[in-house]
Each structure stands twice: as structure tokens, then as C-alpha cells.
Design a protein around this nucleic acid. Structure first.
Lengths: 251, 251
DNA sequence: CGTATTGTTGAGCGTAGTCAAAGTTAGTGG
DNA sequence: CCACTAACTTTGACTACGCTCAACAATACG
């Protein structure tokens, strides 16, 4: 609404419109920038649930923008245990780092069915060099990614199981609120309890027990793939959640 | 040696020479790029041990390049517990993210005395826009940072105490090897056991016990601030360490 | 040389893990 | 549409890794 004047030259039905909208929301892109993004070669692709988008060790030549659905990144360690590194929602890149890194150091998988746009990494790198505002937007995306990783380090290293799970729920809710207009505290929550455990460094059994106490205490209602945050303020307190690491005002 | 032809236009005694050398080591910078870096406004500053370089919540207008010594980044959570997020060695930026993020989401502190170069963040941002190769180098620095954070997430989430500590030691040794020509398996290791615990999500008491078993098993020799890696291969096995996440060949 | 910091040890405890089984839900094919 | 199956969730009993608290020893430093 406020940004309407900026958007006169946006093509709403372009495949990359969600990306342009997200970047434009923090610092205005010039019309030339927008045209250059719209001119990127890209392909739409659909994935079923649990499909691998990127495999650890591979050398992808595309970057993947998530258009709809959810995806997660993870590493498998020697003994077969899995650690989830991040959860991604629509309009985010799931593997922007592969623009400059030669091989993928972790895998990316869908949660539920998802649609993506594949963009050749060479085209993105060239664009970042020729259009400084876009280069800056990609760099900032990387910085925001890293800020979330740092908070996860804290979550795993220094919070107990209940706080870890509450924190993760708060983070996802906050990020989804930022994307859509949100409102009623109800979210699509696509993680199984096993995946939630793999994201928080816990077993699925213990995750289950903690979720029961969060339910019993009237903080959340989570069943099937639907999450209801009943008492956001207390949940944030339990999870020691402070959204400043998300840098919502960053430009 | 191999890069000698590139380095004819490098000024070896410039304050930012370590930075130029590091960046030049992965992808050749043009003479114009090097001149632009050398023209950056910057100030040398010395810090004593345990000095705060950046405080969480502040809005710095400089970025800090570590010239000598060590520094670490950390967050303090509500109950006072500390989580160390990363350890930095000479020639690395300790807070490059503050170029684009408005406020620091964590603190940076020295280990031992350290010398730094302070560069106005506005100058770095401008340079990244006007010189694509430099913008790319900064973006890559951020990506490498993030890759290490991801590995730490795995370390904290899915490895037991012994593997966590072994892994951290392997990582630091590998990064120091990459910097200096290294060789004999002896390193300056500036962390106290309490700090080592804060980096691995453990208490100092348990860290102490684990270090004793690593010593007893003939893997390392760590006393005072001197680390000797006695059996690198077995240490890597114990720590489930694979250096591919460090992307040593990235350009 | 004295004091603060860092490292070491012991005893007891608690959070989270393991293993195994049963219950529930969702998805698939006849 | 229902039956069957696979995936996911829940429960219980037992275990263990790492924490807490407290005291003491060694080292570094002014």
C-alpha cells in the first residue's frame, strides 16, 4: 500500500514476482533492476513431498527460489543422525550459497509438495556484479540466513528442550507473519515430530513429551500439520525468544 | 609463489595487506581493485585481552578486520549463560555482517591482546557496489562464515561431548594451517576450558573431563595456551571432522 | 609474593536418550 | 468406499551423559 508508487513497474504475474516483492520491501529497486531480474533465465519446477532439491556433495549449477510450500536443509553425520539446519518458506532462496561455493555442503529437501524457480547460478552472479542494488540484496539475504544460524547455535547450545522447541515455533511464526498478513495465530506447520526433533537436537520421543507439556500449559495447539499459537507472549517467554536477530528492519 | 605475478602491485606493508592477500588467494583482484582497497579509510587499533570489540545491541559504523590475535563472537541468553558463536583468527573480519544489518545481534570480544583495522561500513558498502570483484569477495566471506555456523549447528545438535570438542579443535587447526604455512601440529590455542565449553555447549567441568580423556588417549596435548595435535587422523575420526564445509577451494 | 583466574576432582542428580510396543492417523490400492 | 499399510504419535521402563555444587590445586599475573 505504502509502496504502491514503487510498484507501478512490477509485473505481478512474473514467476519471480515474490522475490522482487520481498527485495523491494526493504529497499526500493530501480525499474532497471526489476527489468533485469525479470529477464533472468528461470524455470518453474514442482516437487512432491520429501523430494531432494539439492544433495550434499553435488555441484549444482542452479539456485532455487521457493515459490510455494516449505523446504528444509540438513546434514547427515557419520552415524546416520540428521541435523536440520533451517526451515524455508515461500519467497526465500534455499541454496543461495551455491552461487559461489563449488559444492553443496548439505542437502535440501521439501516438506510437503513445493514449487520452485530454478535460476542458473552464473546468471545470478553476473546480475549481482552488474546491478549493485541486487548484489546487495543477495548479500543481505546471506547475512540474514547467517543471523538465523547463529541463533540456532545458541538454541542448541544453551537452551533446554522446552525452550528450544518454543523458540523454533516462535521463529517460524514470526517469519510467516512477515510473509503473509497473518493474523489469527494459526499457521500451516509442516514438520513431523521427528523433524522437529532433528531441528532442535532432540529425539522424537522427547520432542513428543515436550509438545505435550506445551499443549497442557495452554501455549500451543499442534495437531496434524496445523499449529495454533494460543498464548504468543508466554510462548516467547518460555522460548527466550526475541525477534531482533531476524533484523526485520534491515535494508 | 605461484601467485607472484599477481602480486607485483601489492603493497606489502599496507595495513590491509593481510586482507588483500587473503582475497587475492582465491580469485585474482585487478590492480584497480587493490588500489581501491588500499584507498579505504581505516584506522589501526589495539585491544587488550577480553576487550569488547562490538557490543550486542549497538549500531556500529565500522567493520573490524582482525590483524593479529584472536577474537570470538558470543550471545548471552536471559539466564546469563553464554554461547560462543565463532572464533576468529588474523585476516578475518569479525563483524562484516554489520555492514548491512542495523544493529549488532551479538558481541565480539578479544582473546588475548589483538590488533584490528577499523573500516567505516559505508566505505565497504560503497566499495562492494563500485568494484564487483570486491563485492563478491565480501559476499563469499559471508557465505564461508555461514557454512561454519551450519557445521556448528550440527556439532551442537548431534554430536556428543567428546566429538564436539575434537571437532572444534580440528576446525581451528585446519583454519590456522590455511593461514600460516603451519606444519608441526603445534598451535597457539587461546581458549580457556570455560570458553571451550561455551563454544561447545558444555560446562567447564565436563569440558575438563573430556580434555583429560583426549589427552589420555594420546590425541592432543593442551596446556596453558599451547595445543599440540598428536594424532590428527584419529582426532578427526573422533570429531567426525571433514573439512569440506570450509570450502578451501572456493573462489 | 599474594591474589585472581584457571584447572581438577568427587558425589549426587536430572534431563534427555534408548528400546520396545501399542495406538492413531493418513495415504493407497483393490 | 473400505481395507490395508505405512507413517506418525504416544506410552512406559530403564539408562546414561552431562550438570550441579563444592572444595581444592595449580598456574598466571601484577
Amino acid at each position: 500500500v505504502i509502496l504502491a508508487f514503487r510498484e507501478t513497474y512490477l509485473t505481478e504475474d512474473h514467476l519471480l514476482a515474490p522475490l522482487i516483492r520481498r527485495w523491494n520491501g526493504r529497499a526500493a529497486l530501480s525499474e532497471e533492476d526489476v527489468r533485469a531480474i525479470e529477464a533472468l533465465p528461470c524455470n518453474r519446477r514442482s516437487f512432491p513431498r520429501n523430494a531432494y532439491v539439492v544433495r550434499e556433495g553435488s555441484a549444482p549449477h542452479n539456485c532455487t527460489l521457493l515459490l510455494s510450500g516449505f523446504a528444509y536443509r540438513h546434514k547427515i553425520i557419520r552415524d546416520g543422525a540428521r541435523q536440520i539446519l533451517s526451515i524455508h518458506i515461500a519467497s526465500e532462496f534455499v541454496d543461495l550459497q551455491n552461487c559461489l561455493l563449488g559444492h553443496a555442503d548439505h542437502s535440501v529437501q521439501t516438506l510437503g509438495p513445493a514449487e520452485v524457480a530454478l535460476i542458473p547460478k552464473a546468471a545470478l552472479v553476473a546480475l549481482s556484479a552488474s546491478h549493485p542494488a541486487i548484489g546487495r540484496a543477495m548479500w543481505l539475504d546471506t547475512l540474514l540466513d547467517a543471523a538465523i544460524f547463529r541463533e540456532w547455535v545458541v538454541n542448541l547450545g544453551r537452551r533446554d528442550a522446552k525452550a528450544r522447541i518454543a523458540h523454533l515455533i516462535c521463529e517460524l511464526a514470526a517469519r510467516m507473519d512477515a510473509n503473509g498478513p497473518a493474523g489469527d495465530g494459526t499457521y500451516h506447520f509442516p514438520l513431523t515430530q521427528e523433524q522437529l526433533g532433528d531441528a532442535t537436537g532432540l529425539t522424537s520421543v522427547h520432542t513428543n513429551r515436550i509438545l505435550q507439556t506445551l499443549r497442557r500449559e495452554g501455549l500451543i495447539n499442534l495437531r496434524s500439520h496445523s499449529l495454533e499459537v494460543l498464548d504468543p507472549e508466554r510462548l516467547r517467554a518460555v522460548g527466550d525468544f526475541n525477534d531482533s536477530y531476524l533484523h526485520r528492519n534491515a535494508a
